[in-house]
Each structure stands twice: as structure tokens, then as C-alpha cells.
Design a binder for these strands. Structure first.
Length: 546
RNA sequence: GCGCUCGUAGCUCAGCCGGAUAGAGCGUCUGACUACGAAUCAGAAGGUCGCAGGUUCGAGUCCUGCCGAGCGCGCCA
């Protein structure tokens, strides 16, 4: 139970004792102004109708009862009827010592409930990851860490397709380059649609090195599949390399092809047919998705007998459900924002509960350099790859910037700011606080892991503010998990770093007085721990030195 | 045109379940290093929370309309 919840319990029992009323929702918050206490509640105001009395009087009575709790030191009624609480030093140290004992496990909850399948990135292997994928990767990976910390069981999957039209185009693009190496031509159906980017030349060069010119003497149509396979393997390896570079991991890479091979696609379409939610028209099989909340009906099986993308994807989600996941959260790019309704319709047709399928849309990232947006055009092949971005700003900065703002909003990524290793950069601000503490412990010749806390020592205002911020961590994690937002973590870390720096400026840690020194070292150790676990949730390093 | 998401300080963004005087960082201006890291701290200036209504003790937050931006609206994936 976090501090806020403990205060809520105190309030609820005080209300029960004073009025014999059982309140279910008690709103407790940390006031922005320290004058308003460590915690405050508006129960007297919010439930004015229930009490049918002057909110201030109600608040007074609740406060009188709550004052008896050892947990609180002081209670005050303020304004129109807010109740402000100051916690006792004993209570704060009790919590802080718990934090020190638990270390980086502090704020973590025991895993329980149905497992969640988090699917993200899922870019097809037709080229390197670009900066948009980077945001999805950073968001998805951080979210999975946050969900786990908050006690959800999470499995991460990357769904990809290495067959189909796009892959054929990739194969042709590479084949053309490959033939070009030997001064030969490669016949293509539509030269306009080929991938122009440089990586196709790289793949071709690797291919030539591996097989020589043997593909030039074989039948192009037959060879093309082999070239395409080589190219997709190459791209997938490239993507995995980039992912591991950004510390993004998956439990499973799920290939669409396996769904065809196992017959699950066919079986799923058959089940959809039996559900009565499909019909045939103009030689195609349609899903009557408009009856299930979608804008229009969608084709499942094309006139030529092949499946649309949706068919195997529905099969994939059915598979997720059958594997025992209670929820499937798909992280999609903004360009797929219109996709969820048809997916939901397909699953509902099969009787899968509506809330099984959930989606988080990650908005675009606009790169800014020199105050101007960086122009990208997929056609011209000058898309900025994630690797290029990482080369330029580094992995820590990239991951931090990606999740600093809500994934739901479009965001600007200022390269000039990101590249600066200075006070202007919030990543370094947080990391600096961590390094600074590490430095204190080096000087003290003490180990932050084994620091013990203090019992009931009174706290100076800056110490108290720091302590309260530290103890807010579990709530922040839980709140982020519940909302499936990552950005509350950077926001929190920056506030925590500020509280620490403020404390550090005013109070010297390594003083002669043993009691004071112990107390402050304990606060430092606790801060270091929380900074480290917070950064860990983001996949950002916590340096001992900078 | 319809749908989804968004609109908060010069810029980038927070703002929980409707609460007290709307907050940070950057930028601008002014201060602070002969004790633990100045990649820091203290202070100042900077706001009709897109606009207009509504709900109520109370609205940046909820509802409606409008304006503006992005994305989507394929037998592509």
C-alpha cells in the first residue's frame, strides 16, 4: 500500500467513526503547495450532499478523529473544507526504511491477474527501422517494464510478415542492384515502385559476396523468391540489431507465415463464415464489420482467392486469446489509426469479448534541426533511420526523448537540443543527480546498498520534500500502468532530481554529526535507488560518473 | 465530407478521479562555487488553458457547437 492509500484508509475510518458513513471513493492528493500539508483530501467538499452540513464543520470532525492516528502528526482544516495532513517522522522513516530494504524492487508489485500480450513495432522486414518505429519501440518496451513493475504479467511480441507484395518488391529492388553489380539488367514489372533507398544496394552487395553471380544464370522468376528471402532475413537481422542497441526486447517474434502453415488462417475464416457475419460479393468474401461497429464492410478473401492482411491478423489475435492472454494491447503507428474497428469487429464475430482487444496509437515524431522540420520522403528514400538518430544523439537521449511526452500527442524531437550534453538536456539532469549521489558515496567510502535508515528523526523541509517525493514512486508507477502512459515516469524523475538537488544545495551530507550523516546518507541512497529503477523502466542508463 | 487524436508561457511539454494562487525544463534577465560534482541552486519576467455556450459550491479537466492541426477512410500492409 502506498502512502496515499494509507491516508485514504485513515480518512475512510475517520468518516466511519464520526458519521457512521462508509465512503467508497476517497480522493487523496499531494498538494502542490507544501503549506497545504503532505497530503490533502476533499471528502468533506465532495460529499457535501451526503453529509448535508457545512463542509468545514464536517472536515473539522473528521480531522479530530484522524488526529488520533500515530501515522499522522498534524491535521488541519483549510479553505472551504479541505483536510490537510502532515505525516509523522516515524511514519516517513518507516516507509523510507522499507524502501531501502527493498532496493530497486521498491514500488514493484507481486505479479497477479491475467497476462497481457503487448504487441509493438511489428514492422515488416522491408528496410531499416525509421524514427517513427523508434518511438513505438521506446514506448512499447518502457510500457512493458512499467506494467511488470505494477504487477501485470506481460509478454512482448513482434508480429511480422516476410511474404507478400511488399516483400516481392523488396526482392526485385535488391535483384536489380545485384544484377547491376555485374553490369547486367534485371527484368522488373514496375520500375516505379521499387525501393530506392541505399540499403537495397548494401543487401545486394552482401548477396553478391555470398553467392557470386550464380543467380544471373538462373530463371529470374524462380530466383526472385530466394533473393527476397535473403533480403528479408537481412532486414530482420538489421532490425533486431537496432532493437538490441536500444535495449528493446521481445519474448517472441511471431511470423505471419506460421499461421498459414498451421491452417489457422483458413480455420479462422471458416469460423467467421459460420458465424454468419460474412457474405460473398463480386467473387470476394466480405466481413459484415459495419454491423459490428466499423465504418464499412471489409474484404477477407480477395477475388483472386488470397487473403487480405486482416484475415491472418484476426487469426493471430484468436491465437493470442487461445494462448490464455486476458488482454491484447497492440501498439500501432498513427498511420494505422483506422484499423482497430475492423479488427474488433472480426473478433466480436467470433465471440471474443470486446475488451480483449485494445490499441494504443503512437503519434508521429517530427525531427527538428536548426529550428526547421527535417524533410523526409519515403519515395525519395531519405527517411531518417533509427540507427542514424542513435548515432547522432545516443541511445539514452533517444529513448528518453521518445517517451518524455505522451505517445498520444504528436511531438517534436529537437535534434539540436538532444545532442547537447549540457544543462539544457533533461536526460542529463536526471542522470547527473544519480552520478552526484554516487560521488557522495565514493567520498564517504560507503555502499549505498547497505545504508541503514534512521528511526523517527525529524526532517528539515528539503529532506521532507525529498522523502515524500521518493515515497510517491509506487503510486506513479501504478498510475502510469493503469493509464498505459510512459511519460509520467520522466516527469516524476525530473521532479525527484529537482528535490534532490534542492536538498543537496541546502544540506551538507557528509557532516561530522553521526545521526545527521546517517539520516542524509539514507536519503541519498533512497534517491539513488529510485532514480535507478525509474531510469531502468525507461531503458536509460544510470551512470555512476559522467 | 465522415471517423480517430490533439490544441496549456516565445519553444518543448506536465497537470491523477472536477478542487486551494494553472506547473516544470529550455530560452531571456538577476544573483550564488576557499566544504560532499555549478551538467547545480535561488529569484524575476512570461498565460483570455483555441473560441463560444452549458453542467455545479467549484471546470485546463465533464457535455454541446464552432475554429485550427495531424492521421485514417484500398480486394495495400
Amino acid at each position: 500500500m502506498n502512502l496515499e492509500e494509507r491516508v485514504a484508509v485513515v480518512v475512510r475510518s475517520a468518516v466511519r467513526e464520526a458519521f457512521g458513513i462508509e465512503l467508497n471513493g476517497v480522493h487523496v492528493e499531494r498538494p502542490g503547495d507544501a503549506q497545504h500539508g503532505d497530503f490533502a483530501t476533499n471528502v468533506a467538499l465532495a460529499n457535501a450532499k451526503t453529509f448535508r452540513r457545512n463542509p468545514r464543520e464536517v472536515a473539522r470532525e473528521i480531522a479530530n478523529v484522524a488526529e488520533g492516528e500515530a501515522f499522522v502528526e498534524r491535521v488541519e482544516v483549510a479553505g472551504p473544507g479541505f483536510i490537510n495532513f502532515w505525516l509523522s517522522p516515524e511514519a516517513l522513516w518507516d516507509e523510507l526504511n522499507g524502501l531501502l530494504r527493498e532496493g530497486t524492487r521498491y514500488g514493484w508489485r507481486e505479479a497477479s491477474g491475467e497476462p497481457v500480450l503487448l504487441e509493438f513495432v511489428s514492422a515488416n522486414p522491408t528496410g531499416p527501422m525509421h524514427v517513427g518505429h523508434g518511438r513505438q519501440a521506446a514506448y512499447g518496451d518502457s510500457l512493458s517494464r512499467i506494467l511488470e513493475a505494477a504487477g501485470r504479467k506481460v509478454s512482448r511480441e513482434y508480429y511480422f510478415n516476410d511474404g507478400g507484395n511488399q516483400i516481392r518488391l523488396l526482392g526485385e529492388s535488391v535483384a536489380v542492384r545485384y544484377a547491376g553489380i555485374y553490369g547486367e539488367e534485371w527484368p522488373v514489372s514496375d520500375p516505379e515502385s521499387l525501393y530506392q533507398s541505399e540499403y537495397t544496394a548494401e543487401i545486394a552487395a552482401d548477396l553478391a559476396e555470398k553467392v557470386g553471380r550464380k543467380y544471373l544464370d538462373t530463371d529470374p522468376a524462380a530466383t526472385l523468391t530466394e533473393v527476397a528471402a535473403f533480403a528479408t532475413d537481412w532486414c530482420m537481422a538489421d532490425i533486431k540489431r537496432t532493437l538490441s542497441r536500444t535495449r528493446v526486447s521481445f519474448d517472441r517474434f511471431f511470423n505471419e507465415k506460421s499461421l498459414y502453415e498451421s491452417g489457422e488462417v483458413e480455420r479462422t475464416v471458416e469460423r467467421l463464415r459460420e458465424s454468419g457475419h460474412t457474405y460473398e460479393e463480386e467473387g470476394a468474401l466480405w466481413l459484415a464489420s459495419s454491423e459490428l461497429g466499423d465504418d464499412k464492410d471489409r474484404v477477407l478473401v480477395k477475388r483472386d482467392g488470397t487473403y487480405t492482411y486482416m484475415a491472418p491478423d484476426i487469426a493471430y489475435h484468436v491465437d493470442k486469446c487461445e494462448r490464455g492472454f486476458g488482454t491484447s494491447v497492440d501498439v500501432l503507428g498513427a498511420d494505422h489509426a483506422g484499423y482497430p474497428p475492423r479488427m474488433k469487429a472480426g473478433l466480436m464475430a467470433l465471440g471474443i469479448p470486446e475488451d480483449f482487444y485494445d490499441v494504443e496509437i503512437v503519434r508521429l515524431v517530427k525531427l527538428i534541426r536548426g529550428g526547421e522540420p527535417v524533410k523526409v520522403s519515403r519515395r525519395a528514400g531519405n527517411v531518417v533511420t533509427l540507427d542514424e538518430l542513435l548515432d547522432e544523439v545516443g541511445e539514452d537521449v533517444a529513448r528518453y526523448f521518445y517517451v518524455r511526452s505522451s505517445h498520444k500527442t504528436e511531438t517534436n524531437f529537437d535534434l539540436d537540443l538532444a545532442i547537447k550534453q549540457s544543462d539544457e538536456n533533461p536526460v542529463f539532469y536526471v542522470q547527473y543527480a544519480h552520478a552526484r549521489i554516487a560521488s557522495i558515496f565514493r567520498r564517504a567510502e560507503a555502499d549505498p546498498e547497505t545504508v541503514i535508515g534512521a528511526t523517527a528523526a525529524p526532517l528539515a523541509p528539503e529532506e521532507r520534500a525529498l522523502a515524500l517525493e521518493l515515497l510517491d514512486f509506487p503510486r506513479v508507477v501504478e498510475n502510469a500502468a493503469a493509464r498505459r502512459e510512459v511519460h509520467p515516469i520522466p516527469t516524476y524523475l525530473e521532479t525527484l532530481a529537482t528535490r534532490f538537488h534542492q536538498f543537496y544545495t541546502v544540506h551538507r551530507v557528509l557532516v561530522e554529526d553521526d545521526e545527521t550523516r546517517t539520516r542524509r546518507l539514507a536519503l541519498c541512497a533512497a534517491t539513488k535507488t529510485v532514480l535507478r529503477s525509474g531510469l531502468e523502466l525507461l531503458g536509460v542508463s544510470a551512470p555512476e560518473k559522467m
